Simulated scan of single mutants.
Amino acid sequence: MKVLHVIPSLSPTLGGPTQVALQIVKSLRHQGIDAEIVTTNYDETKLLDVPLNQCVEYQDVPVWFLPAFPHPFKEYIFSSALTRWLWQNIDRYDILDNHYLFSYASTCAGAIARCQKVPYTVRTQGQLSSWALKQSSLKKQFYTAIIERHNLNQAAAIHCTTLEEVEDLKKFGIKTPTITLPLGVDPPEQISSASAELHNLYNIPQEKLIILFLSRLHYKKRPNLLINSLNKIVAQNNNFHLIMAGSGEADYLNYLQKLVHKHQLTNHITFTGFITGRNKHLLLQGSDIFVLPSYSENFGIAVAEAMVAGLPVIITPGVQIAPEIATADAGIIIEDEAGLTNAITQLLNSEAMRSRLGKNAMVLANDKYAWKGIVSQLICSYQEIVNTLMSLSEISY
């Protein structure tokens, strides 16, 4: 079976979706499936420096990069080269796995797949949650009416990562069959001296507990809420240091830095920018608490990464794996700033609580979010779709 994953961009700065696409294809190939990715060279600030119009090994995965076309609606990521490539090559694949909604790559791939009778699936990636649909709502309503609803209705299946995402799809009026599989994480390579190394790397006193925010610096993720909470905590307990690891648009980053200065928290907060590789492993293994007070996350891959590293997590109900975390006693679910302030205070004051939640988090992540088992189920779903199409073709013949 030959599988093509279609995603608008693999820019590292786009966070979870990029990582997920690469990891799924890598895991598929480890299990004997001939899987590839087609995408563009789009990046948030500049074009990716990658070979174009050829299949290259990119982070151990075969990827076709096509040139993106600059235009005012940058989130749409148009590419005429991608259109030509898909039209000429799509029939070489047994099934397509399309990532994202409201974007040219998945829209174009779905349309061409229908013309050439190649089955495709779609990953909505939380873009149908009530919060997400309110963002740029008029553009999304227009796009839905003329393109996206048909694209979803004609898919062989919709990939959902949680039951909440399935409900979002139903509320949107889509009756296409769903495949509900969580995303996965791999246990990190252990760094025994991670805590000491992390403190030394950012010149943090060894006695300080490290709170980690690891995600894009975007208003959706509400890092400002975390900063405001720490402002309320510092007078009673200043035994912490927040590491904000992630990139963001310059204006929003400037707003956060001004907020830190306003609250006189400069000595308690470090902005690292985008982090990857060994330094990311240091962050996950050397920190003490993970916080993501996001408005909306269909899964929250960074949350799962924190859990598999044994960190207690503080998240909102908007992170759709929150019910599983609550059931497993693997973290604290908060609703607002007061709840966040209370949760951080509890964990700062109780090593036993941090240890209990962290151990439960690691167990949950290893039991439920292991790539090998998830991808095995995904392969079965692919095969069922391909077999169904073949059966229908034989009947038609």
Rank of each mutant, 00 (worst) to 15 (best):
Q88G: 13
Q88K: 15
Q88M: 14
Q88P: 02
Q88D: 15
N89H: 15
D91A: 15
D94K: 08
I95L: 15
L96W: 00
L96Q: 01
N98D: 03
N98V: 07
N98Q: 05
N98E: 02
N98R: 00
N98A: 09
N98L: 14
H99P: 02
H99Q: 06
H99S: 01
Y100H: 15
L101A: 04
F102A: 04
F102V: 08
S103T: 13
S103W: 05
Y104N: 03
A105F: 03
S106Y: 02
T107H: 07
T107S: 12
T107R: 03
T107D: 01
C108G: 03
C108F: 03
A109V: 08
A109R: 00
G110I: 06
A111I: 15
A113M: 10
A113Q: 04
R114E: 08
R114F: 04
C115W: 13
C115Q: 12
C115L: 14
Q116L: 14
Q116M: 14
Q116G: 08
Q116H: 13
K117I: 09
V118T: 10
P119C: 09
P119A: 12
Y120G: 05
Y120H: 04
V122R: 05
R123F: 10
R123Y: 08
Q125M: 14
G126E: 02
Q127D: 04
L128K: 01
L128T: 06
L128W: 04
S129V: 11
S130Q: 15
S130Y: 11
W131P: 06
